[in-house]
């Protein structure tokens, strides 16, 4: 008897990662990483604690809610899961969440596998491709990229509810006016992992670069 193309666990995982990531089930399966990510999350969070989180998240979604319905530690796990899908790496968690989960692993960022990096979804948010993989061909970098799809269009394409996919923010972030604290700032050095980079400072708030 052959293994199914996707186990019931993986199907369930993908289904409820759709509203979390903003990518369709097709796109999530297309990475070929769903099983590996579920394993990684279970190992990093601990199987029982992951189950508790997962149940909470499913309840939130089926109850017509979103990330704002998650307790802080679960919110951090949800973020880690999205980071995993978007970059192929497990991030450093907020120390409070790390302690709350009683994790036995070091709280540092790591790349799950070479193939995981290649399947990061972040590149697709801006019409790109992972640096060092899936090259699009000679001269394609001269083409003007299309505008990113709007949230309503994405919601419709995903078939997800019209709920807030944000926490701690009153309204959708306007692309015209992105708060600096949602952007990365200067790294003190190349050794700083992406998930530990400080947030940006508001332009013009420091006297820098002026004579």
């Amino acid at each position: 008897m052959a293994d199914p193309a996707a186990t019931a666990d993986v199907q369930d995982f993908v289904k409820f990662c759709v509203p979390l990531t903003g990518f369709t089930a097709f796109d999530l399966y297309a990475t070929d990483m769903a099983g590996a990510y579920l394993d990684t999350a279970r190992r990093q969070v601990g199987p029982e604690r992951f189950d508790t989180f997962w149940t909470a998240w499913k309840q939130a979604v089926t109850g017509g809610g979103g990330p704002q319905d998650l307790a802080p530690t679960h919110r951090e796990v949800a973020r880690a899961l999205v980071y995993l899908w978007y970059t192929g790496a497990w991030p450093r968690l907020a120390p409070a969440a790390h302690a709350d989960l009683r994790r036995e692993q070091a709280n540092t960022e790591f790349v799950v596998a070479p193939e995981a990096y290649v399947e990061g979804l972040v590149w697709r948010t801006f019409h790109g491709h992972p640096s060092g993989a899936k090259p699009p061909g000679f001269g394609t970098w001269g083409v003007r990229p299309p505008a990113p799809p709007e949230v309503e269009e994405l919601r419709a394409g995903l078939g997800v509810r019209d709920v807030a996919y944000r926490t701690g923010l009153d309204a959708e972030v306007s692309p015209e006016d992105i708060p600096a604290h949602l952007l990365p700032g200067f790294r003190s050095g190349r050794h700083v992992p992406p998930s530990e980079v400080p947030v940006a400072t508001v332009p013009g708030t420091i006297e820098e670069g002026r004579v």
Partner: peptide, 26 residues
């Protein structure tokens, strides 16, 4: 991705309140 999600905690190590997910993150 990390800063938009708000991962990693604030200066006291607590889970940050602000962050975006799903279609809004994309």
């Amino acid at each position: 991705v990390a800063t938009a999600l708000g991962i990693g905690g604030d200066e006291h190590g607590e889970v940050r309140p602000d962050g975006v997910f799903g279609p809004e993150l994309r």
